[in-house]
Simulated assay, not measured.
Amino acid sequence: MAETALSDETLRDTLRDKILADPDVILDDHDVMRALVAANERMLGSNVVDLRGIAMERLESRLDRLEDMHRSVIAAAYENLAGTNQIHRAVLRLLDPVSFEEFLASLGGDMADILRVDCIRLVLETAQSEEDPVLKRLDDVLCIAEPGFIDAYITDGRNLPIRPVSLRQTLPSSDAIYGEAASWVRSEALMRLDLGEGRLPGMLVLGSEDPHQFKPAQGTDLLTFFAGVFERSMRRWLS
């Protein structure tokens, strides 16, 4: 028993010396500090209010909220950087084709993979009843529509302002664009294209099976930039 008591006393002395030599070890350990504060409150009794302890708890709670916010900001920054790199890759891919047919075909190939969407559709309005045979071969990417279709589809027939980019879940009328794929496309990004003076508008559509990939509350800066590059490429091919 004497040896046990001696060893306990030696252990306490050693621990005390270490704490005095480096008190930050205790101060930086939240669990140890909570245990010390709790022990101090028990010694004070139930009729004494420790205002300093209350203040420490509030400061600790505020610190936790700030740390959560800091992590959220960092995560958003990384996500934005990844999105920017993604759009840059897509823009470079737009510059690769040497023919209009190859340009359109790329939309149904690696462009969808780069943008991480399940399908891409290009909607062009035309007043002509006959279709170009070249365009007919690309009907899995290209959608030919009557004048006025694009604005009506974006607004769903309502009197709403037309924005350059609209993000939403798909509508029941989406089969006019996606065809059979309308059964599984659940959200979409609509980019209205200005194809130049004297031409009817166009629309680039990104479709996703994930109903939450495109939502109205999301930012559209990167897609607006991509749409601007795409419509300038289209003007070059149509000139």
Rank of each mutant, 00 (worst) to 15 (best):
G179F: 00
G148R: 07
A176T: 05
P164D: 07
I177N: 11
S166K: 04
T155S: 11
I144H: 14
L160D: 13
I150E: 10
P161K: 01
A181R: 15
P147T: 00
D156K: 14
R186H: 13
S173P: 00
L167N: 09
F149S: 05
V185I: 15
T170C: 09
Y178E: 02
A181L: 11
S166N: 06
S173V: 08
R186W: 00
E146W: 11
G148E: 03
A182G: 09
T170A: 09
Y153H: 15
T155I: 00
D175A: 11
S166F: 03
R163N: 14
D151N: 14
S183Y: 15
E146S: 14
E180M: 08
S174H: 06
L167G: 01
Y153R: 03
A145Q: 15
A152S: 13
D175R: 13
R168K: 13
V165A: 06
I154W: 03
E146V: 05
S174W: 03
V165W: 06
T155V: 07
G157I: 09
I162V: 12
I162L: 13
G148L: 13
A182E: 12
N159T: 14
T170W: 07
A182W: 05
D151S: 14
I162M: 03
R168M: 10
P161Y: 07
D175I: 04
E146T: 13
S166Q: 12
A182F: 00
L160C: 03
D156T: 07
R158N: 12
V165G: 02
V165I: 11
R168H: 02
G157A: 12
S166R: 00
D175L: 06
I154R: 09
Y178V: 01
R186I: 03
G148M: 15
Y178G: 04
S174F: 10
P172A: 05
G157E: 08
S174M: 08
